[in-house]
Amino acid sequence: MINIYPIFYNKKQYLDLLLLADEQESMIDRYLKRGDMFVLAENNEIKASCVITEEGKGIYEIKNIAVYPQFQRQGYGKKLIFFLLKHYKARCHTMLVGTGDSPITIAFYKNCGFVYSHRIPNFFTDNYEHPIFEAGKQLKDMIYLKISISK
């Protein structure tokens, strides 16, 4: 049985999972306290987590979503996305997510219904202490995707 539930305290107990999606702890610290955190468990085993922040005026942003490697490509990330869209429906009109320019990650979000919004040039090279690579490509720009939520 799959359960998704909020984490109100001691969010850093899931740091190993959070670091899968955001490789630098100081960057996670920027949003973890102000964000809502959820974990997805199946049969009491944690499979995935996410952190979402309110950005104002009905806009929310997925700051971190991660699935343990051994559970990836099994639908857990998608279940979390759809949970968030339903959970925030009453107060959110636009859900954003920022990610690196990786075909794997962008394809995942597009499969969930997100479309391109905008780009922040050099985000990863300007804000991270070391180069970040995904699918053999160094991440430079932050690519923002969005989905509209109709009430």
Score class of each variant (00 low, 15 high):
I2E: 14
I2T: 15
I2W: 03
Y5H: 06
P6I: 05
I7G: 08
I7V: 15
F8Y: 11
Q13Y: 05
Q13M: 12
Y14N: 09
D16E: 15
L17I: 12
L17T: 11
L18E: 15
L20T: 10
A21G: 15
Q24E: 15
Q24S: 09
E25Y: 05
S26M: 09
M27S: 12
D29W: 06
D29E: 15
R30K: 12
K33H: 09
K33A: 07
R34K: 13
R34S: 14
G35Q: 01
D36G: 00
M37E: 09
V39N: 02
L40H: 01
L40Q: 04
A41G: 02
E42D: 02
E45G: 00
E45K: 01
E45W: 00
A48P: 04
A48L: 05
A48N: 03
S49F: 00
V51D: 05
V51M: 04
I52T: 07
T53G: 03
G56N: 00
G58T: 08
G58P: 02
I59E: 08
Y60K: 04
E61W: 12
E61A: 15
E61I: 05
E61K: 13
I62N: 05
K63R: 11
N64I: 05
N64V: 02
I65A: 01
A66S: 13
V67Q: 02
Y68V: 06
P69D: 01
P69C: 02
Q70A: 03
F71E: 02
F71Y: 14
F71S: 05
F71M: 02
R73K: 14
R73I: 03
Q74K: 11
Q74T: 00
Q74I: 02
G75F: 00
G75M: 09
Y76F: 13
G77H: 02
G77R: 00
L80E: 03
I81E: 02
F82M: 04
F82P: 09
F82Q: 04
F83D: 06
L84R: 07
L84S: 06
L84H: 05
L84K: 03
K86S: 14
K86Q: 10
H87W: 06
H87P: 07
H87G: 01
A90H: 10
A90N: 14
A90L: 10
R91D: 01
R91K: 14
C92L: 03
H93V: 06
M95V: 15
M95S: 08
L96T: 08
L96P: 03
V97A: 11
V97F: 10
G98E: 04
T99R: 10
D101P: 09
D101Q: 15
I104M: 14
T105E: 11
I106G: 04
I106N: 08
A107S: 12
A107E: 09
F108P: 09
F108E: 09
G113S: 11
F114M: 08
S117D: 13
R119V: 11
P121I: 07
P121T: 11
N122D: 14
F123E: 12
F123W: 14
F123M: 12
F124M: 13
F124W: 10
D126I: 13
D126H: 14
Y128K: 07
H130R: 12
I132F: 10
F133W: 06
A135C: 14
A135R: 02
G136P: 03
K137R: 11
Q138I: 14
K140V: 14
K140W: 00
D141M: 05
D141G: 06
M142N: 12
I143K: 01
Y144E: 10
Y144W: 05
L145N: 08
K146H: 01
K146Y: 03
I147M: 07
I147V: 15
S148C: 04
I149H: 07
